[in-house]
Design a protein around this nucleic acid. Structure first.
Lengths: 139, 139
DNA sequence: GTAACTGCAAAATATTTGCATCCTT
DNA sequence: AAGGATGCAAATATTTTGCAGTTAC
């Protein structure tokens, strides 16, 4: 079975053109996408509203997660299998390339613990590293 | 001299009602503010556009810095003295309290280095920790 | 006096909601 | 057939831009 099909089925989502296509985009590209990227990539095949709703659905189901960014845009990226609905495990490092501008999930790099001042109790943490990615390095 | 006056002067900005007031807000509150917060706190004393422009000016001058957030809003917080125009040193940890929802700069907690996969060259990093802050702890 | 800042109007952009229709199961 | 997903229209929210009047120095 196609990977995107199985992901949708596993999450009790009906399989529609839009969901398949958007999920496929994430699977193909491997980096994080903004709403605007998805609109561009799908070239108006789906209504702007459908894209909003699809992304929201995927976030709710734990298929994708949001990535914090300094600039305006909200980015989304695929979750690992360990994510479940309402319970994300996205405590890995996100890398933003200054050159190609891609945002990549470094799934294997976990966010280190830091010593917080007295009284602060951490529950979750996120980390963003900027720089040059492995693909742009050689060029 | 007032602290906000000296900050403005130091950055060659003319001292206006709006700039003084917005800077004062940051100095008083100590936590990070979104554009919407500032509008609410100043209760329409200044045009919405003025607030946008003032924040942009402050960012350009290195008086405040933007903080990445998981949800939509862009947050701003005061920079330490070591920040200069066009050259931020905001590599400290930002703490978001789940209870009071404030975002606090932990200026003394520096972002630890992480080992990146082969080929990735870091230039800058940011970190966000969620949890319960010191003030909400006791309550 | 002059350059810079502000407010207003309006354009451009982004996001949300309601509802009728169509599609998946 | 029934429930959910989509598209369209429109409401709402957010951000940017131009310009004329005002203010800081």
């Amino acid at each position: 079975m196609n990977q995107n099909l199985s992901i949708l089925k596993k999450n009790n989502l009906s399989v529609t053109e839009g969901r398949r296509k958007i999920l496929e985009l994430f699977l193909e590209r491997g980096d994080a996408l903004a709403h605007a990227d998805i609109e561009k990539q799908t070239e108006g095949a789906f209504d702007r509203v459908t894209v909003y709703r699809t992304l929201q659905t995927f976030v709710d189901k734990g298929i994708i997660h949001q990535i914090p960014t300094t600039d305006n845009a909200i980015l989304y990226a695929l979750c690992k299998d360990s994510c479940e609905a309402g319970h994300h495990h996205d405590e890995h490092v996100h890398f933003v390339c200054d050159k190609c501008n891609k945002t990549i999930c470094l799934d294997d790099v976990t966010v280190p613990n830091v010593k917080l001042p007295k009284g602060f109790k951490p529950s979750q943490s996120a980390m963003i590293v900027k720089g040059i990615c492995n693909e742009c390095r050689g060029n």
